[in-house]
Design a protein around this nucleic acid. Structure first.
Ligand SMILES: [Mn+2]
Ligand SMILES: [Mn+2]
Ligand SMILES: [Mn+2]
Ligand SMILES: [Mn+2]
Lengths: 226, 226
DNA sequence: TTTTAATTTTAGATTTGTCTAAAATTAATT
DNA sequence: AATTAATTTTAGACAAATCTAAAATTAAAA
């Protein structure tokens, strides 16, 4: 049986959801895909049949090893294409997601390995997310949300949790990009907003909602070559 | 109504067929797509509904202006991606067709215009076929089949009519590529095979079937920059 | 100009992916 | 523990793209 575009999108979404919550629920997956619970149930039966997912009705579900492998390959393609679009075709980091959502379904394995080599084996995508290598190994990151960063502790932006283009546009406007070095100057308990200082720039204020979605590491470059 | 992948493949195939025969027949299209006549009829009704094709039942059909415009855009994408695969990712010209068959359906207009610029606005693809420009203008070529080339007249390979990978592999083996300068040394009336001479190489013999599918121009580069 | 052959279309099925509404199950509250 | 609420699944429907087999139409041959 074939793994269609829709199945690939389901696998990828399950993978991301189970990263956070271990096991995934029908409603959560439907929400994440912009579809309905009934449709998710239908699809799960097919994915179970194909032995990509462990699923018992009413009990929630998660990818098995095969499913995880498949999902990681799709994520690899998504992120490599995003990198290509930004680095080679001059797209902004807030414009690439939709296009990669289509490109990730191109099937040729050789294509993606050649693309990887052409790009110099990058290890993070334009949003700071790690790119799985050709064996599907995905490096783990130790990063915290900016909301949890202690006052005056230098850190470096290494990822963005909520990657809507509205969010990315807001960050762009405030000159916060991947790799930006910053520290928190002040925390306002009233609304949990923060004043953040970037070198050579006037301080900017970020809402708690924004801060929660900016991920930082202890001032260390997020990209190290292999 | 949406233009699906399958509809795009139909439009493209109709375009190519009508180049040759003016009007297209149900069976011809089915053969060209590896599908059945009944399926073609079904699809034609949808394409007519969408006003992309002029179709009266039992009378044959052809693309109207809208349909032609759509088809040319798909061809543009197909050929630009082929160029990218060969020139940037080091694929052989006989390996790229299947992959481009998928890539041509990626929808972003901005992507394809950026890709075009990134590649330096090439005007022919790796098989010598012209790449439509961003306005959809497609240059016409004056080329003849190698089978019709007069004896001892220098010419240059500018296109391949039958682009199966078997054909491309055979040409590769005989050191015949796009742009190769050659002339015919001898014609064998018995089977219409030809002896062809390429500079600095021993002469090679080509069957009539191959010769018919190798297109040449009067020894003039096929690619001229705009 | 009949008759026969080829082509094209219709009728009716099937598969895939989706939906809504109703039923079944599980979870949360009195 | 009984009732209510939320979640999940099933039942039944629909659109898209395909198929086979039969009917309609057109073209070719006798
Ligand atoms: Mn996708
Ligand atoms: Mn990304
Ligand atoms: Mn295609
Ligand atoms: Mn080509």
């Amino acid at each position: 049986m074939k793994v269609s575009v829709s199945k690939e999108d389901h696998l990828k979404a399950i993978f991301h959801l189970q990263q956070e919550h271990g096991t995934v629920t029908t409603n959560a997956l439907a929400a994440s895909l912009g579809t309905r619970a009934a449709s998710v149930t239908d699809m799960l039966k097919k994915l179970k049949e194909q032995k990509l997912v462990n699923y018992e009705r009413y009990k929630g579900f998660k990818l098995n090893n095969e499913g995880k492998k498949a999902a990681v390959q799709i994520i690899r393609k998504h992120r490599l294409w995003e990198y290509f679009l930004v680095k080679k075709l001059q797209f902004g980091w807030d414009e690439v997601h939709e296009i990669a959502e289509e490109l990730e379904h191109i099937s040729s394995r050789k294509l993606i390995d050649r693309l990887d080599a052409f790009l110099g084996h990058p290890d993070t995508d334009p949003h700071g997310d790690p790119i799985p290598d050709s064996q599907g190994r995905l490096q783990v990151r130790r990063q915290v949300s900016l909301a949890e960063l202690p006052l005056n502790k230098p850190a470096q932006v290494s990822g963005i949790a909520s990657q809507t283009s509205e969010m990315l546009e807001l960050l762009q406007y405030n000159h916060i990009r991947l790799g930006t070095r910053l520290e928190i100057r002040k925390k306002f308990p009233f609304d949990h907003s923060l004043e953040v200082k970037v070198r050579n720039r006037p301080p900017v204020t970020l809402s708690a909602q924004v801060a929660k979605n900016v991920l930082v590491t202890d001032d260390e470059p997020p990209t190290e070559k292999r």
